[in-house]
Design a protein around this nucleic acid. Structure first.
Length: 557
RNA sequence: UGACCCAUGGUGUAACGGUAGCACUACUGAUUUUGGUUCAGUCAGUUAAGGUUCGAAUCCUUAUGGGUCAACCA
């Protein structure tokens, strides 16, 4: 039966896995090679996570390897600083690359490829301005036309191209173009630019080069040099595949193949580098690692686990159609994993004092499980006394019928402690409730309850005599619109005003003092939290990863 | 109005000419010392019209809808 299920599951492959399996079955390859090719000009985000999981996942599943290749062909936007961040993020997600490569490693080889193309009469140096090139390119409905530079001889082109390399010409003065077809229906095929002059300092090659290859003349060739079998990219590169294949054919080099999938989009956020940068520079968020950012760094700081992100990528699958995955899926994955690993702790966000009027002792020690989902997780000691705090929300003077929490004359269980009953509500001169006088049932102690009282509600609480103050950052979705990048008006119009609510003085049980970085907690009935890197022992700061599901709050609406 | 890509419940994804399934969401109910978890269940789908076929989500045609392409970005 399990065999049957296994067989059934095995059948359900995504289309990329099907391609790989077919290639393997046909004996086209013995092992596969993929690559993850980030441009080092920004931080990795949740969309990249999908691509990472796809590429690394494939080589892990079918044998082979995945190269990390920095696509650093544009020196003006790229920086080494990003390289380190990207590597850290990939490792954190749990993947190891077979090789660390840079497109810039291949500049000399790429140059030789270009020379070969020129010699074949398949490339020429064009002196036109970018405006002229654009104009000559035609439009989607009208063919383009060649200019006189396309008539240059091989010798002339060879000399000009070498001079371009040697820095004889200024930026923009000349380009090298492939000679393909100016009337091709695919605009990308209308003599695409292969090299442009950029007298800029490159983060790795320094000032060695005055010319840099374009994406179309670097990516596929790098794939080929590395003998990548399956080069996976997003759908916007579909039209480029024709050039990709054309160049491999003309250059007579290792035939890598490009396959495209639809970029995964997450609701209530955006992944455009420009817009993400704007959020940072215009201070809508505190930085690239702000816990509300969809960057890997942001998700990490928010408390997401690598496991939950990988699970998310697995669940949403991969296809070729436009999509917008509901943020609820990512949140579900976080809860799913966190529920299993998070240590339970009690924290009162908005304290209301409770005095147990019939509690005689000075206090006592009680025990509470660290995680009911994990029997091996053990328990911790908590203390009880006659002065406690409960959540202000957990008391109502005029409670509706289905309210399971505390109300005058009503009884509730204090988690891992006693059942109490509210006898008296104390108010100040303004009429605000400042204290509840309650009585407890001595024989209702958790684990040894003989009171026979049954209550519907269980509240979290802290002991006023040993609790301590912490700051809690309650994060929520950054945008109110499902698809802020495509909503009417500016995306900044849809920023969620309540995406961060700071609770400056929440009261926590003593066990939380030992919290360390990367440790995950569930604050009972509140949600999942993790220590912020900016936290200090004197002022602990916790970030909310995600709330617990709350069917009571939902029913209230 | 050129070329290309895509179209399955609210969302994401399976079914490879033969019973439209899974997950998320939503809603019921049970359990519960977290209104959490867990468990059981319910609602809900093949863009349309033709054609091929014993049989079409699947193949063909057309239409419709969405997306991409006219950067010296990747």
């Amino acid at each position: 039966m399990t065999e049957e299920n296994k067989a059934e599951e095995k059948k359900s492959l995504n289309f990329l896995e099907e391609i790989v399996e077919a290639d393997l079955a046909a004996g086209k390859y013995k092992t596969i090679m993929t690559r993850f090719p980030p441009e080092p000009n920004g931080y990795l985000h949740i969309g990249h996570a999908s691509s990472i999981c796809l590429n690394f996942g494939l080589s892990l599943k079918y044998g082979g390897g995945t190269n990390l290749r920095f696509d650093d062909t544009n020196p003006v936007t790229e920086e080494t600083e990003y390289v380190e961040g990207i590597k850290k993020d990939i490792r954190w997600l749990g993947f190891d690359w077979a090789n660390e490569f840079y497109a810039s490693d291949y500049f000399e080889q790429l140059y030789a490829y270009a020379v070969k193309l020129i010699k074949k009469g398949r490339a020429y140096v064009d002196d036109s301005s970018s405006e002229e090139i654009a104009e000559q390119k035609g439009t989607p409905t009208q063919p383009g036309h060649r200019n006189r530079y396309a008539e240059r001889t091989v010798e002339e082109n060879l000399q000009l191209f070498e001079e371009m390399r040697n820095g004889k010409y200024a930026d923009g003065e000349k380009v090298l173009r492939a000679k393909i077809d100016m009337s091709a229906p695919n605009m990308i095929m209308r003599d695409p630019i292969l090299y442009r002059i950029k007298k800029a300092h490159h983060h790795r090659t320094g000032d060695q080069w005055a010319i840099y290859p374009m994406y179309d003349f670097a990516h596929g060739q790098s794939d080929s040099i590395e003998q990548i079998t399956h080069s996976i990219c997003t759908m916007e590169f579909v039209p480029h595949r024709e050039v990709y294949d054309w160049l491999i054919r003309e250059l007579e080099i290792y035939p890598s193949h490009q396959y495209e999938f639809a970029r995964r989009n997450l609701s209530h956020t955006l992944t455009s580098k420009r817009k993400l940068l704007q959020l940072v520079t215009e201070k809508y968020v505190s930085g690239w690692d702000d816990p509300r950012m969809p960057t890997i760094a942001g998700l990490r700081r928010r408390g997401y686990t690598p496991e939950s992100i990988r699970d998310y990528c697995e669940r949403i699958g991969v296809g070729k159609r436009d999509n917008l995955v509901d943020a609820g899926v990512l949140e579900f994955c976080a809860r799913e994993h966190l529920n299993k690993i998070a240590l339970r702790r009690m924290v009162v966000f908005d304290p209301l004092k409770v005095v147990i009027t019939n509690y005689a002792g000075t206090g006592e020690q009680l025990h509470s499980e660290n995680n009911p989902e994990d029997p091996a997780g053990g328990s911790r000691t908590i203390t009880f006394s006659n002065e406690l705090y409960i959540e202000r929300d957990d008391f109502m003077e005029d409670a509706p019928k289905k309210y399971f929490r505390l109300a005058p004359g009503k009884q509730v269980r204090l988690k891992s402690a006693y059942i109490i009953q509210c006898d008296e509500v104390i108010k100040n001169a303004e009429g605000d409730i400042v204290q509840l006088n309650c009585s407890y049932f001595a024989n209702s102690k958790s684990g040894e309850d003989t009171s026979g009282i049954s209550v519907k509600g269980t509240l979290h609480w802290v002991n006023a005599r040993d609790c301590f103050s912490i700051q809690v950052n309650e994060y929520d979705r950054l945008f109110t619109a499902e698809d802020p990048a495509n909503a009417e008006g500016e995306f900044t119009d849809y920023i969620n005003e309540h995406s961060l609510r700071v609770v400056a003085n929440a009261l926590a049980e003593p066990a939380l003092k030992k919290a360390g970085p990367e440790e995950r907690f569930q604050f009972l009935r509140k949600g999942y939290f993790t220590l912020d890197p900016g936290s200090t022992p004197e002022q602990m700061i916790f970030n909310r990863t995600v709330t617990l599901k709350d069917s009571w709050a939902r029913a209230g609406k």
